[in-house]
Design a protein around this nucleic acid. Structure first.
Lengths: 340, 340
DNA sequence: TATATTTTTGTTAGCGCTAACACATTGCTT
DNA sequence: AAGCAATGTGTTAGCGCTAACAAAAATATA
C-alpha cells in the first residue's frame, strides 16, 4: 500500500502502483487494463483484474482527467429542484451521460441569473467536458467567462433567441400563441394569468407576453394577473385561483404557468362547486402525466422534457464543435382537455 | 499560455503558472490566493485576482484534490428521479454541501440493489469524501467494497436495521403501525394495500408488513393488494384504486405506499362519486405539500425529507469518524386528514 | 531461416495542483 | 540597535494517473 502524507479520515486507498506490484506488472499495464485500451494479453489482464478486485482497487478517473484534460463530467444547471419538469430533463441528461461513462454535476440557480453566474463559475472549477444551462438569457459576465474558457455549452428549454452555441427546446412564444388562439376560438375573452417565482421564470414570461399580445390583438383582454413569489405548487395555484375568482369581474379563462398551478386551480373549483369550464376555463403547461389522473383532463401544452435533456447531453458528447448556432426546436404541442 | 498535448475540442485553459507569470509572482502564491490560505499581502492578492480574472482563469479544484486526496465531492445514490420525495432530500443534501464548497454527484438505482452496486463502484472512482445511500439493505459485494475502501457512508430514509456507519431517517415499521392503529381506531376492518415498483421499494414493504401484522393481530385483515410494476404516480394510484374497488368485496380503507398513489385514489373516488371516507377511507405516506391543495386533505405520515438530506450531508462533512453506529431517528408523524 | 510485422510490455516525462519546508522581510520589543 | 516573532514569498517534491515513445516478444511472410 502507498504511504500517505495527509491524515485524511479515509483509509489509504491502493493505487495502480500497488496493484501493479501485486500483479507483477508495470503500473502502465494496470492503467491499460483499467481503461481497456491498447494491447494486453489475456493472462496479464486476468491477473491484474484479480489483483485489483482482491485489493479493492477502484480506478481513479479524476486523476486521469488531470493528465488528459478530460474529466468525465458535464455541469448541469437547473433553476430549481422543486419542479418535476426538471426531474424529467435530468433523467434524459443522466441516462445519456451515464451510458457514455460520464456523470452530471448539478447546480441550482433558484431562478436568479446572478446565482447562475456563481454556479457556472463553480462548475467550471471541475473542468467539465461541457455545460448545460437553462434558457438563453444570461448575465454578461457569464457570457464572458464562457467565451474565455471556451467550454462547450448547450442551452435548453428555449429556442426564442440566440444560443451561445446550441440550444434544445421549443418556442415559448409559439406555445403562448397556440394557447391564446385555442382559447379565443372557444369563445373566451377575459383572461387571467397565474404564475409563480415572482416573474423570474423567464420562459413563463415569454409565454405570457406572447399570449397577452395575441389575445389583445384579437379583441380580447387580460383582466387579471397573479404572480406568487414562492415556488410553483398546487397549493399556490389553488390560492391564486381563489384570489382571482373572488374579484368583482373574474376572468372566464385562466392560463397558468404550469400544470401544478393549474391543477391547484382545478382543485379549488372542484371544492367550491365552480363549474369548469362553464364558469371558468383552465389551461396549464407541460402536459405532465398526472393530469390524466385528475377528475377533469386539463388542457395543456405537452413539452418534450426527457428528449430535451437527452439531446442536449448527446450534443455535449459529440466532440466536433462544428454545429455552432444550432437551434433544435423539439416542438411543444397543444393538448386539449376538458377544462377549456 | 501553456501548451497542450492532446487536441481536445476545448480551448487551452490557462493554468496557475500562466496567472503567476502575468501577475509576476510564483505559482504557489497564486495557489494561496485561490484557496485563501496562508499569508498573502493585499497588493499581491489584488494583482493575482486581477490577472486571473482578465485571463479567465478558473481554479481547477480536481487537480488539487489529486494532490490532497480530498475531492470536493459526495456521491449520492437515489432509487429514482421520478419521485418528488427525493427532490426534497436532494435539496437538503445539495444546500448543505454547497455551503461547504462541495457538490453531490448522483447515481440512480431504479430500486435495484444490483444497479446500486454498479453505481457505487462508479461513484467510488471519483474518490468522493463520502457516500449517501438509500436504505439499509445492500448486496454483500457492495458492503465489501465499502469496507475495503473505508469510504464514509451515510444511509438515509430508514432506521429499521443496522447501519454501516450512520443512518438518518425514521422507522417505517413504526409508521406502518401508527397508521394501522389509527385506522383500526376509526373502525375500519378490511384493508387494501396499494404499492408500486413491484415491491422493490423495500421501505414501503416494511411499512406494509408492519401494518399487516398489526391489523391482523387486532382482528382486522388485509383483503387486497395491488402492486404495479411501474413507477409511482397519481395515474397508477387511480388505476389501482379502480381495480381494487371493482372487486366483489372491496376494502373499507386503502393504505397507499405514498401520497401520489393516494391522491390518484382520491381522484378516482371524486370522479366516480364514491364517498370518502364513508365508502372507503384513504391514507397516503410522506405528507407532501400538494395534499393541502386537494379537495379533501388525505391522511398521511409526514416525513422529514429535507432534514434527512441535510443531516446526512453534514455528517459526511464532519471529519471525525467517531460516531459509528449512529442511528438518527428524525421521526415521522401521522397527520390525520379528512379521508379516514 | 532471415526479415518484416504485429502484439505485448515497459520507461520517461509531465498534467495542474498542494504540502512541507526554506528563506526573506517587516514590525515590534526592550 | 539587537533580538524575535509575525508575515510574506519561493522552492522542491510528489499526488495518481496517461501520452508518447521505446523495446522486447510473438507471429507472419518471403
Amino acid at each position: 500500500m502507498a504511504r500517505r502524507r495527509s491524515q485524511t479520515p479515509q483509509k489509504a486507498q491502493p493505487t495502480m502502483h500497488d496493484v501493479a506490484r501485486v500483479a507483477g506488472v508495470s503500473q502502465m499495464t494496470v492503467s491499460r487494463v483499467m481503461r481497456g485500451t491498447g494491447y494486453i494479453s489475456k493472462d496479464v489482464k486476468n491477473e491484474v483484474v484479480k489483483a485489483a478486485r482482491e485489493m479493492g482497487y477502484v480506478h481513479n478517473r479524476l486523476a486521469g482527467g488531470n493528465a488528459t484534460y478530460d474529466n468525465p463530467i458535464v455541469g448541469v444547471v437547473i433553476p430549481t429542484m422543486q419542479n418535476r419538469v426538471f426531474n424529467e430533463v435530468l433523467s434524459g441528461i443522466n441516462d445519456t451521460l451515464v451510458e457514455s461513462g460520464l456523470r452530471p454535476v448539478f447546480g441550482v440557480t433558484e431562478y436568479s441569473l446572478e446565482t447562475e453566474e456563481d454556479v457556472v463559475f463553480d462548475l467550471l472549477s471541475w473542468r467539465p467536458r461541457g455545460l448545460i444551462l437553462p434558457g438563453l438569457e444570461h448575465t454578461p459576465s457569464l457570457r464572458k467567462i464562457i467565451a474565455q474558457t471556451g467550454v462547450r455549452v448547450a442551452e435548453i428549454m428555449d429556442v426564442d433567441g440566440d444560443p451561445i452555441s446550441a440550444c434544445f427546446g421549443f418556442s415559448h412564444a409559439q406555445a403562448g400563441e397556440d394557447m391564446a388562439r385555442h382559447l379565443i376560438e372557444r369563445g373566451y375573452r377575459r383572461f387571467g394569468l397565474v404564475g409563480s417565482q415572482g416573474g423570474l421564470d423567464l420562459r413563463a414570461t415569454k409565454r405570457f407576453d406572447a399570449f397577452s399580445k395575441l389575445v389583445t390583438s384579437l379583441g380580447a383582454e387580460v383582466v387579471a394577473r397573479e404572480n406568487d413569489t414562492q415556488a410553483s405548487s398546487m397549493e399556490a395555484g389553488r390560492k391564486m385561483t381563489s384570489a382571482l375568482l373572488d374579484e368583482p369581474n373574474p376572468p372566464d379563462a385562466i392560463y397558468y404557468a404550469n400544470d401544478d398551478l393549474a391543477a391547484g386551480g382545478l382543485m379549488h373549483c372542484l371544492a367550491n362547486g365552480i363549474d369548469v369550464p362553464k364558469e371558468v376555463a383552465l389551461a396549464g403547461f407541460n402536459g405532465l402525466g398526472f393530469l390524466s389522473a385528475l377528475p377533469k383532463r386539463i388542457t395543456s401544452t405537452v413539452t418534450p422534457r426527457y428528449k430535451i435533456g437527452a439531446d442536449a447531453a448527446s450534443w455535449i458528447l459529440r466532440t466536433s464543435s462544428a454545429d455552432a448556432g444550432l437551434k433544435s426546436d423539439l416542438g411543444a404541442t397543444l393538448r386539449i382537455g376538458e377544462t377549456t
